[in-house]
Design a binder for these strands. Structure first.
Length: 272
DNA sequence: ACATCTACCTGGAGGC
DNA sequence: TGCCTCCAGGTAGATG
């Protein structure tokens, strides 16, 4: 599942193959993603040069000479660099064809992803306007976490996963970061002490940094191969480990449901 | 302003 | 083997 680390790894993998390349065509085989892929995308972007590739939360921003292609991977999306003549599979919905003879190919079996356009006069798409803080920037620290959590009655886990406050943290890394910070996922956000906010901010940053590092080293066949890029297998401490022994204390990991999402935690290591 | 719920989609797992 | 049901996930938009 693409969360911030997977999207960032994708960005870094694509960068050397896309920078300063011109777009010669955009092939849309399936326009029905989360929102319809703009019908005139090839006209809007064709002939332009890719001058930058940025990430905002889980959105990838392909900056062109005039305008931006915005791609979100949803929960099953992946991007790869392939020879543009490579046969497309059933879930290969969009190709951005480059003047190198290669293409950026979007595969997304569940079609929760999105391919959108922002014109040169609208540097930010409305979708990006209400996003929260980037957890890997210097501005995100314990003080920030403290400020964000004040007066909030919902759980700290729900707050971490709310992109209006903090971007990039999905279910997997919310579970993992709370484990590393020793915080019980159902604790009301507003009850977190200042020291625990500092601990949590560090845990979020550290968890994401380590996942990006793991992705960079294991995502070897980003280019060329016809298989999925294979989002790196991480050694999780709690995620998807219900009833298994905690890697730290040996207690069985517990599973509960919060806001229709699976929450995993260690009853010994994580306290209210 | 905040909190909670629903919809979107499909592959894979488990039950019968 | 095949059919059915359920689940996973991100997040905008609706609802409370």
């Amino acid at each position: 599942m693409p969360e911030l680390p997977e999207v960032e790894t994708t960005r870094r993998g694509l960068l050397p193959h896309t920078q300063h390349r011109a777009i010669v065509d955009i092939v849309v085989r399936q326009p029905r993603l989360r929102w319809p892929v703009p019908a005139n995308l090839a006209v809007l972007a064709g002939g332009q040069t890719l001058v930058g590739l940025e990430r905002r939360g889980k959105y990838l921003l392909f900056r062109l000479t005039r305008g931006t292609i915005i791609i979100h991977l949803g929960m099953s999306g992946s991007l790869r660099i392939l020879d543009s003549a490579a046969p497309a599979g059933i879930h290969d919905h969009v190709d951005i064809v480059l003047d190198s003879g290669q293409c950026i190919r979007l595969r997304d079996p569940r079609r929760f992803g999105a391919v959108l356009w922002a014109g040169p006069d609208e540097p930010d798409h409305p979708l990006l306007a209400s996003l929260g803080i980037e957890p890997l920037t210097p501005e995100f620290d314990g003080d920030c976490m403290y400020r964000l959590s004040r007066e909030r009655k919902n759980s700290i886990k729900a707050l971490l996963m709310d992109s209006h406050h903090i971007v990039g943290v999905g279910n997997i890394y919310a579970n993992e970061a709370l484990f590393h910070a020793g915080i019980h996922p159902t604790l009301a956000a507003g009850k977190l002490s200042r020291p625990r906010c500092h601990r949590l901010a560090l845990a979020i940053r550290d968890t994401l940094d380590k996942a990006i590092a793991a992705g960079g080293s294991s995502l070897r066949d980003f280019v060329g191969s016809d298989g999925m890029p294979g989002y790196f297998q991480q050694q999780y401490f709690v995620y998807a480990r219900a009833d298994l022994a905690c890697r730290v204390c040996g207690q069985p990991i517990r599973l509960l449901r919060q806001n229709q999402r699976a929450t995993f935690y260690c009853p010994q290591c994580q306290k209210k």
